[in-house]
């Protein structure tokens, strides 16, 4: 009996050891590219790649040049643009998502189901499909090129009510008896929203803020179209991609790495700080579909 127990323990230990080995390999694979990026950002030699992981000549130049040089690439401007877009989009999108979710979760009106079906169908059109139309529409309103930032904000915010699923799923789980009690006490639906639902919705508000803040940092498709030919209004995604164009890739690769490190700081930091809420949203969303 004791022997059997010991052998079982041994098998357990062996399987755990194998798992640790796998985990270490996985971690290695996942970390190396980022470590490489960090190292390369301090590299003094130019060129796309050198034959060593660590820089032979350490330097801060790549970072300094990012902030001091404005030609041909004006990184600081891109960063500012992206930050402004992200902040404005976050505020507007969060409000729209909350409001839509409350209406669809708690209020009952004739168009509710048709509306939800409509949004489902609209969500199946490739977002890209509307691209040309949006471009011309914004051009008519003079919101491309010089006012590209405003145009981009409109595009990102425009259909944000379609992202109501996760938030509505959360609202659905708040017991209805709460609002009914308040309604009996004479609260209007507006008061129920502000006094009962919103105070309980902190996790989902944070989730919405987080996701809507992170999205504009990596958006390339619309940003490249709407700011076409106007460097000043590029966001970081378009700008950094431009840095790696075939002609400039070798020269600017180290600077790209430096820029990437700087761009990553805010989103990554924020993400790790609010990770818990993100996980809740993702799992909640998947469970509810």
């Amino acid at each position: 009996m004791a022997k059997k127990l010991r052998s079982k323990k041994g098998a357990e230990r062996l399987s755990n050891a194998i798992i640790y080995v796998i985990l270490v390999i996985i971690s290695f694979i996942w970390l190396v590219p980022f470590a490489y990026m960090l190292m390369q950002s301090f590299r003094g030699e130019i060129g796309l790649a050198t034959s060593s992981f660590f820089p032979r000549k350490w330097t801060f130049d790549n970072y300094i040049k990012l902030f001091t040089e404005t030609k041909p690439f004006n990184f600081l401007k891109w960063y500012g643009t992206t930050l402004i877009i992200a902040v404005v989009v976050t505020v507007i999108q969060t409000v729209i998502v909350l409001v839509t979710s409350y209406a669809l979760s708690r209020l009952r009106f004739k168009m509710r189901k048709p509306l939800m079906n409509l949004m489902l169908v609209l969500g199946m059109f490739p977002g890209f499909m509307s691209m040309t139309a949006l471009y011309f529409l914004l051009k008519l309103m003079n919101l491309t090129q010089d006012f590209g930032i405003v145009g981009l904000i409109f595009v990102y915010v425009g259909s944000s009510c379609m992202g109501y699923y996760v938030c509505k799923g959360f609202f659905d789980t708040i017991p209805r008896s709460l609002d009914e009690a308040a309604r009996i006490d004479g609260a209007s639906r507006r008061m129920v929203f502000f006094k009962i639902i919103l105070p309980l919705a902190k996790p989902i508000i944070i989730y919405t803020v987080l996701t809507s803040f992170l999205a504009p940092w990596g958006e390339y498709m619309f940003a490249s179209l709407i700011t076409l030919g106007n460097q000043n209004n590029w966001n970081v995604a378009v700008g950094l991609k431009e840095m790696l164009q075939r002609e400039t890739a070798a020269e600017y690769f180290t600077r790209f790495c430096a820029a990437a490190v700087i761009v990553s700081i805010v989103p990554t930091g924020l993400f790790f700080m609010l990770q818990r809420y993100y996980v809740e949203g993702v799992t909640g969303g998947s469970v509810k579909g």
Partner: peptide, 23 residues
């Protein structure tokens, strides 16, 4: 209240999603 809440989101939806698709 649903009219108050949904008017702005749906206006955005119409201009930035439905209109481009029809176009």
């Amino acid at each position: 209240y649903h009219k108050t809440l949904l008017s702005v989101p749906l206006l955005g939806l119409t201009i930035f999603t439905i209109f481009p698709i029809i176009f």
